[in-house]
């Protein structure tokens, strides 16, 4: 029952909004992965064909139950931090909210189309940064004219051209920080109803982190809800007023950031 009182506190800290409008409702969601473990057992074409005919699964498939019955409601204007140890199901939950991974059981309801922006958003590494910006923007549903208008802005924001003209070089030549910055900049170029950020702020240097935190604040004001997955507790503390702590695919705690972070820190230090 403690949780309910906490979420009531959140209402008090948001005086701008009279009626709380939900943007994401997660109702007892379960997400299950099927992972191929790779070469194990008979991988010859004949065996493969036999499996297809008999419609049996390859012997090397393992089922991973990553999210186990998560329920919460997020409201417009909220920024919610998602924390938890590695493998606790944070990223999987974000993908389920984004509608990219189907839930096995339960339901996820969202307003509009949530956008996930993560460090593993794969772009084409053989292509120059500029081309990837164009491609990424088109994939988010922008029109070509809009893309042309936004392109210089995005390159500028990402700061990849600070060390010479990197925008025209293939992305495989970028450092991991640079490509993460470019991905964040692409995704942040659009207005989102619900924005899901997966560790994107953790990479990049201090100056970029400042800029991106500023951008997240802008997006929050103009749009709906922001989810932030991070191991960097400081960035959760700076951007989110509510935090959900996931452990082994279940919600361990849901409430105002300072309290949840304190409990989480006690938990991780005590280990």
């Amino acid at each position: 029952m403690v949780n309910l009182e906490m979420s009531n506190d959140v209402t008090v800290t948001l005086p701008r909004i009279q009626e709380r409008i939900p943007t994401v409702v997660v109702d007892d969601a379960h997400v299950v992965y099927r992972v191929h473990k790779g070469a194990a057992g008979n991988t010859s074409p004949v065996a493969a064909f036999k499996r297809m005919v008999t419609r049996t699964n390859a012997p090397n498939v393992r089922v991973v139950h990553a999210v186990r019955g998560v329920t919460f409601t997020a409201y417009r204007g909220e920024a919610i931090g998602l924390i938890g140890t590695n493998g606790s199901g944070k990223s999987t939950l974000l993908r389920a909210i984004a509608g990219l991974l189907p839930v096995e059981q339960g339901a996820v309801y969202t307003q509009g189309q949530p956008s996930l922006l993560g460090v593993n958003a794969a772009l084409l590494n053989d292509l120059p940064g500029e081309r990837n910006v164009t491609l990424g923007c088109l994939a988010m549903g922008m029109s070509p004219a809009e893309v042309r208008r936004k392109l210089p802005e995005i390159i500028e924001f990402s700061g990849i051209n600070q060390r010479g003209d990197f925008a025209s070089l293939p992305m495989r030549t970028y450092s991991s920080g640079m490509s993460a910055r470019l991905r964040f900049s692409i995704a942040a170029a659009k207005q989102h109803d619900v924005l899901l950020i997966d560790e994107a702020l953790a990479t990049g240097d201090k100056a970029f982190r400042k800029r991106s935190e500023q951008r997240v604040r802008e997006l929050r004001e103009s749009a709906g809800t922001v989810f932030l997955v991070s191991h960097q507790l400081s960035s959760v503390r700076d951007t989110c007023e509510r935090t959900i702590w996931l452990e082994s695919g279940e919600i361990r705690m849901d409430g105002p950031t300072p309290e949840v972070l304190a409990a989480y820190e006690a938990f991780t230090n005590g280990k």
């Binding site: 309910l4 979420s7 009531n8 709380r20 409008i21 939900p22 943007t23 994401v24 409702v25 997660v26 109702d27 007892d28 329920t71 919460f72 409601t73 389920a96 909210i97 984004a98 509608g99 339901a107 996820v108 309801y109 969202t110 307003q111 949530p114």
Partner: peptide, 21 residues
């Protein structure tokens, strides 16, 4: 889902026009 209104998550989602992700 919402302690104030006493709705279940599905009802709350339906009331505000949310769609299944």
């Amino acid at each position: 889902a919402d302690p104030d209104s006493g709705l279940t998550p599905a009802q709350l989602a339906a009331r505000h026009g949310l769609r299944v992700a």
